[in-house]
């Protein structure tokens, strides 16, 4: 940690760009598994492609994050608050990897190659493994629910810093 007051421009772009992508992906995911309507296939196809893009983005984001200084947490935070801030951020990163990986693996074990814009296809198993499909299908859901909860906590904490504590935590990402 250093004296920097704000996240770097690249980190802010990754943060808000991926925030929009993740919001769209979670919304699409929740709606498409329930729908029988014609748009379902279009959204599902896009969801898979943007999952691939999300996996690439979060990898680049993590490298970017590890190479740059970030603002220190406010000094007046208690030890457990600092700990939970750090743990929740690494959990967020973990889930951002776990979502596309579990999504890909459920397709892989269901033997469903993923078509990327008609340019190429991601490989899938030749033969279905229904147990592994079920495992990753259910994990994909559990991770999604965990991610939604963690994002809610993340937004709540950001607002808490800004509105109640009136510190610079939220501003450092704007």
């Amino acid at each position: 940690m250093t004296n920097t007051e704000r996240f770097s421009l690249s980190m802010r772009l990754f943060h808000w760009g991926m925030a929009a992508l993740i919001f769209a992906m979670l919304t699409a995911g929740l709606l498409m598994v329930a729908s029988l309507d014609g748009w379902q296939l279009t959204v599902l196809t896009a969801h898979k492609v943007f999952g691939v893009i999300a996996a690439l983005l979060v990898s680049m984001r993590l490298i970017n994050r590890l190479r740059q200084p970030i603002p220190a947490l406010p000094d007046d935070l208690s030890h457990w608050q600092k700990m939970s801030a750090r743990v929740s951020h690494w959990l967020l990163y973990g889930l951002l990897f776990a979502m596309p990986v579990s999504g890909y693996l459920m397709q892989y074990f269901a033997a469903r190659p993923i078509d990327v814009f008609g340019w190429f296809r991601l490989p899938a198993a030749l033969n279905v493994n229904i147990y592994n499909y079920a495992l990753f299908r259910e994990l994909h859901s559990v991770f999604a629910i965990a991610l939604i909860c963690l994002i809610a906590l993340h937004i709540g904490a950001a607002l808490h810093h800004h509105i109640i504590r009136k510190d610079k935590v939220l501003k450092s990402m704007l």
Binding site: G38, L41, I130, Y131, R137
Partner: peptide
């Protein structure tokens, strides 16, 4: 490629839900 036939599109969605249920039960 798939046509826009609403029944065809819906078959895929319904099969996915049926498949998820029975796959998880098998697991």
């Amino acid at each position: 490629e798939a046509t826009a036939d609403p029944i065809l599109r819906a078959r895929s969605s319904a099969y996915a839900e049926s498949y998820r249920r029975r796959a998880t039960e098998q697991l």
